[in-house]
Design a protein around this nucleic acid. Structure first.
Lengths: 137, 137
DNA sequence: CAGGATCCTAAACGATACTG
DNA sequence: CAGTATCGTTTAGGATCCTG
């Protein structure tokens, strides 16, 4: 850990190659999915839906700052990836419910885990930034 | 869990409030950190650095498609948040090494967990999209 | 109510050139 | 080598209006 002239020579183990083979490759399809899941609103929508089914306006109200357009687009991304189930009731006025598929719950839990960790460690992070700690009184 | 007409009325438990209190609030400082960590290149840089110390050009080569500018900016974000340690050796030509702090390793593991999950389930996801499964021959 | 269509701005991003 | 500076392009994102 103290030889500045030798750089870490790639842990070329088989498992590493197989498990995280192409994420670093520019054309890896995972990147698209990752983009949806880690998008500004994707994270919040997934976490919100972990708490249960929501209607469009519920999500809009819950996820502070999201616009109609972006919420719709985010939901379509996540639906397209098989994470979100869209259930439309043919009534007037329209009634649409969004929920997580099993796949979505799985990925949502990991996203929530990450988000929770950040909130929990926000204090240390802000201190690293030299910013005031707003989590403690 | 099966009443479509009653939406989840906010789990106003203390723990929920404390643990994920303000993520949904527009001005929550966590969002900024989340943005860095889940950014297009932030994810890849964190995962790359989990494998060990890298020099700038190593990262540049490893993370396919990243530009000098974005790599530099991403590293500065992560350094500012206390996730990445920048070690500069005053030699010529310049020699700079990037590694993860304990905090960075912690968050990196969660990001990697998410990324790995996506790669592992890419097959199911692409099928949900109706796209061909490129992970199986 | 749920969103599609349109228009527009700000931000992200990339390519290139340049410097200590 | 490890960046910064600058510029041009692309995309994200928001506001508004409109419809079933």
């Amino acid at each position: 850990m103290n030889a500045p002239d030798t750089l870490t020579p790639e842990p070329t183990t088989l498992t590493a190659q197989l498990r995280r083979g192409n994420l670093f490759a520019e054309q890896c399809p995972s990147r698209e999915v990752l983009k949806h899941v880690t998008s500004r609103w994707g994270v919040l929508v997934l976490v919100a839906l972990l708490e249960g089914t929501h209607r469009f306006s519920d999500l809009r109200r819950k996820v502070g700052g999201v616009s109609e357009k972006m919420l719709a687009q985010t939901l379509q991304w996540l639906e397209g990836d098989g994470f979100v189930l869209r259930k439309s009731y043919p009534v007037v006025p329209p009634h649409v419910e969004y929920s997580l598929t099993p796949l979505g719950r799985d990925v949502g839990l990991r996203v929530q885990d990450l988000a929770d960790w950040i909130e929990l460690n926000l204090s240390s992070i802000l201190q690293a930034r030299g910013e005031p700690d707003r989590t403690a009184p």
